[in-house]
């Protein structure tokens, strides 16, 4: 019965997010609206490749795949992460409902996870649109992909787990600061974009920044996702990448649970649930 209750709570928070995000609009209009952003977003990055091909004549389809898949996959992680962290900010600052949520919902950790789940789903839709449109634009032969569907699904679930736990930690930190909450969320998203093998491999980074990429499971996840989507994309030490991804995910879950419990306790003690900046 406990699991039924758990799912009922989870579903309620997901439904609330859907209503709030779609602003109670027609689902078809909302679907069209949400497809604008990924469509143009991938155009922005695909044109980085196209501009070089157009102006310098440098054509390399493997690089096109790397860039398009990186940007598309980043949206899955980024959308969920931003959505999760932004929940704290919007509920406390804009709508001033965080304290009521805290009173009504049995677990703030679960509530944030559920609120972010919707964002991850939207992020996944973004990813699919961007991947298909991006590959088409850059002229990559889509029929060559040969994806391993089971591995893709497993990796998506793992991606949701580690990035939502990263989001929980960052959201927890943002409770302590009304001023810096949104900035922290953008900074974490930006750092993942910078060091997460999104537009280029880690080896393209200056040596002093490279160690930063080891803090996150992003590089392993990106590389494995690329390989799962396209068997022609070769990765070295695939076994090591799998174990590192799994290990880092477990560590993230453990730290997030402990950290958020401490944060929750301090938040109640200091009254931060209703501390607003009053925009």
């Amino acid at each position: 019965m406990a699991i039924v209750k758990w799912f009922r709570r989870f579903k309620a928070a997901v439904w609330l997010t859907w209503k709030e995000q779609s602003n109670w609009t027609n689902p078809i209009i909302y679907a069209l609206y949400t497809s604008i952003t990924p469509f143009f977003s991938v155009l922005v990055y695909a044109y980085i490749y196209i501009a070089i091909a157009f102006l310098s004549g440098l054509v390399d389809l493997n690089r096109a795949f790397y860039l398009v898949s990186g940007v598309a996959l980043y949206n899955f992680i980024g959308s969920g992460l931003y959505g999760l962290i932004w929940t704290v900010h919007s509920e406390r600052e804009h709508f001033r409902t965080l304290k009521y949520t805290y009173l009504a919902f049995p677990s703030l950790h679960l509530y944030l996870m559920a609120r972010s789940f919707y964002q991850f789903i939207v992020g996944l839709i973004y990813t699919i649109i961007m991947f298909v449109v991006g590959l088409y634009l850059t002229g990559y032969p889509v029929y060559n992909l040969n994806p391993d569907v089971i591995e893709v699904i497993i990796l998506i679930i793992l991606g949701y787990i580690w990035s939502s736990q990263l989001g929980i930690m960052v959201a927890g930190s943002s409770i302590f600061s009304s001023e810096y909450g949104p900035l922290i969320s953008e900074a974490v998203g930006g750092i993942l974009f910078l060091v997460g093998a999104v537009l280029y491999p880690v080896s393209a980074l200056p040596p002093f920044i490279r160690p930063l990429s080891n803090l996150f499971p992003m590089v392993e996840w990106m590389e494995l996702m690329r390989h799962a989507l396209n068997r022609n994309y070769m990765v070295s030490n695939i076994g090591q990448l799998h174990s590192m991804l799994l290990l880092k995910t477990i560590i993230y879950v453990g730290i997030a649970i402990i950290y958020f419990r401490i944060v929750e306790k301090l938040t109640r003690e200091k009254g931060y649930l209703e501390a607003t900046l009053h925009h």
Binding site: I48, L58, D60, L183, A187, F193
Partner: peptide, 30 residues
Amino acid sequence: SWILWEIILPMIMIASVIWAYENMGAPPIF
């Protein structure tokens, strides 16, 4: 500190795209 953040955050995106261009062998004018 807000000013500092608002300089650093766009720089992160700019740095990412510059390194992407460098990785693809684009001319320095990019």
